[in-house]
Design a protein around this nucleic acid. Sequence first.
DNA 1: AGGGCTTAGTGCATTAATTCACAAAGTCAG
DNA 2: CTGACTTTGTGAATTAATGCACTAAGCCCT
Lengths: 230, 230
Amino acid sequence: MTQLQRRKIPDAAIARLPIYLQILNNLAVTNVLRFSSDELAALAGVNAAKVRKDLSYLGSYGTRGVGYEVTYLIYQIKRELGLMREWNVVVVGAGNLGCALAKFDGFLSRGFPVVGIVDNDPKKIGRTTSSLTVGDVADLKNIVRDEKVNIGVITTSSAAAQSAADALIEAGITSILNFAPVVLSTPSSVSVRHVDLGVELQILSYYEQMRIETGIKSDSSPELSKVGVQ
Amino acid sequence: MTQLQRRKIPDAAIARLPIYLQILNNLAVTNVLRFSSDELAALAGVNAAKVRKDLSYLGSYGTRGVGYEVTYLIYQIKRELGLMREWNVVVVGAGNLGCALAKFDGFLSRGFPVVGIVDNDPKKIGRTTSSLTVGDVADLKNIVRDEKVNIGVITTSSAAAQSAADALIEAGITSILNFAPVVLSTPSSVSVRHVDLGVELQILSYYEQMRIETGIKSDSSPELSKVGVQ
DNA sequence: AGGGCTTAGTGCATTAATTCACAAAGTCAG
DNA sequence: CTGACTTTGTGAATTAATGCACTAAGCCCT
């Protein structure tokens, strides 16, 4: 493969790029043309050196003494993250959360249109939510092929999550966002990200209890979470 | 403060304890009495030494040559995470996601009852979702006091998120779970965890693009996300 | 044209997290 | 009771991430 060797960017930096992108998009809307690493650092709640290092993984796109150009950096981050195109999403599990996500415009607006939602419950199959009709999980393979799905979102019960994952992988999906509170077993060629709301609350619980036990001296808990790392 | 100095547990370990707890609860249901660090490591998808080190932060509760007792470890993890009690949750923002979360039984079942949901939109105030009536965000202070709320969950639009956070903090809340795609500005005495679904998808997008560009040689993306860290 | 000012980029020290690898401590069979 | 076997607990090595502090570059004012 005579392909230009791709820069290896640390995972921790990759997880911050979407946050920067978010902020830069807001700056663009308010017609800000330029920003310095200090400014972005303040807005993102991180260290300025970290911002510069993170951005330097993209290439040397700043100007010393001046800063970075908002629109150009937006372009570069999007390019790096693979956001120059859309990625189609299928939701597996048409419960409360699954339906809420299917309706959620934050997905579409960020370039991740939800092109299908499926379930294994005959009572749910055929129902319509926003503009989608709930399909049969058994048809996943066809849906993935016909709708050119790239990413699977699992919002089933924890009992059904592993078989949902198996079905997605069988259908050729290699990126999964899992909301079910179970650790999925998947080949290492598949990327899985796990969002567990219970886990988030339990982590908060730890720091909250800590504050109570130590008499609210506080200041020991991290400002930002692991989701969208600080 | 003549309090027993609390063991300082690394943040990364704290974020894994809820995952272990999850798995142990499942083991308990299937009447498994004991487990070894190897077994738990396999189930959690992590290294066995990491499991042992994480559990050792709780104290020396294993037996060499034997392993750990399921129920005893569940007890110890819950104690450490502050899960011997319930923590009351209020949801700010009664949109799709907020209502889905208010209904979500995963919160209650893990000891985080949702005791209130509020919004600032007069059209939404007064509506009933599951067993809750949407209150006015202006009453947040009273709700927090009367319902003994410990944790605030923000599911507003990104435009409204900062003022929602300010209102929560003003009402005395020190733990916030934020779903809005903005970085909140908060005093360091407040713990904030940020779950941004768009960010999760964008991270997946990066690794997906990487696989495509490098010709699906794969194996370079992390197995588990930062939310509920590996 | 030049000097002062600002800010990116980065080498290096530090800190945090992970993993290895082994001694210590226990079980169990005979 | 002894010796083989298992598995914990943890120092020490390694790897990853962070943040400092300085150099290099470019702007702007005079």
